[in-house]
């Protein structure tokens, strides 16, 4: 993972590397699904989410498909690129249904077949994207934890944020002085931040200089109203 960037994965996937395709799909399927589900919530297209998700990846992987057209030298964020692909597939589905309707000379307005607002949907996509990267950062931090102390710091973050335990309770539970645990907590947060920076570099190798700012931007995406 450490030497790869999303572009090497993309290139591998475009070249037919099964491993790269698997990594690519595993990484981005949740984001793709989240977008399609939000777009087609309460519409008649909802049952097509699985098919459309598949089409997104078929579009990416086929000869001359979307991944083949990617130019990593261009200063484009991969998030924007993927968003474009997913949105196009969704639009294609919707257009096809609209075309069918026209063939039938149907003119009535069907509120159950109107997709969600595009503006809101891009927020959904952004938030799903941010959550996906943060989760990967958490996983990366856990993967990089090479000794017991580092693993304990990951556990500390889990207790703090999964269980909602205050630091003093964690200290009490571990039989440690609270100040020591606070210190470890600060280290754990710093390690997480480093993992997140790695993750951001993975997705935007050219933006490495501004990785701090990218972190802030990514975290801000979590707060976007959807």
């Amino acid at each position: 993972m450490s030497n790869d960037t999303c572009w090497t994965i993309v290139r591998g996937a475009a070249d037919g590397d099964a491993g790269a395709r698997s990594v690519f799909a595993r990484t981005y399927l949740p984001v793709v699904r989240a977008y399609l589900l939000a777009r087609w919530r309460n519409t008649g297209w909802l049952p097509h989410v699985d098919d459309a998700s598949q089409d997104v990846f078929v579009d990416c992987f086929r000869d001359g498909g979307a991944l083949g057209r990617v130019d990593p030298e261009r200063r484009t964020q991969f998030r924007t690129f993927l968003f474009g692909i997913v949105r196009n597939v969704a639009l294609r589905y919707e257009e096809r249904v609209a075309r069918d309707k026209l063939r039938q000379h149907a003119t009535e307005f069907r509120p159950d077949e109107q997709p969600g607002r595009e503006e809101r949907l891009s927020h959904v996509f952004d938030r799903a994207w941010a959550r996906s990267l943060l989760k990967r950062a958490g996983q990366r931090q856990a993967d990089l934890a090479s000794d017991d102390a580092a693993r304990r710091r990951v556990e500390l973050l889990q207790l703090r944020f999964r269980e909602g335990m205050p630091i003093r309770d964690i200290a009490k539970r571990w039989g440690e002085d609270a100040a020591v645990v606070h210190h470890e907590y600060a280290r754990a947060r710093a390690e997480f931040k480093a993992a997140l920076c790695d993750e951001i570099r993975f997705h935007d190798p050219q933006g490495a200089a501004n990785v701090e700012r990218e972190c802030e931007t990514l975290l801000a995406l979590l707060r976007v109203d959807a």
Partner: peptide, 25 residues
């Protein structure tokens, strides 16, 4: 890396950590 991060109590980072470690969807 071992220095205390000034954002120990930054709610934005807290939210990020929660997204990373909480039981998600």
């Amino acid at each position: 890396m071992t220095d205390h991060d000034p954002r120990d109590s930054d709610p934005l980072w807290d939210e990020g950590l929660r997204a990373a470690f909480a039981d998600g969807d």
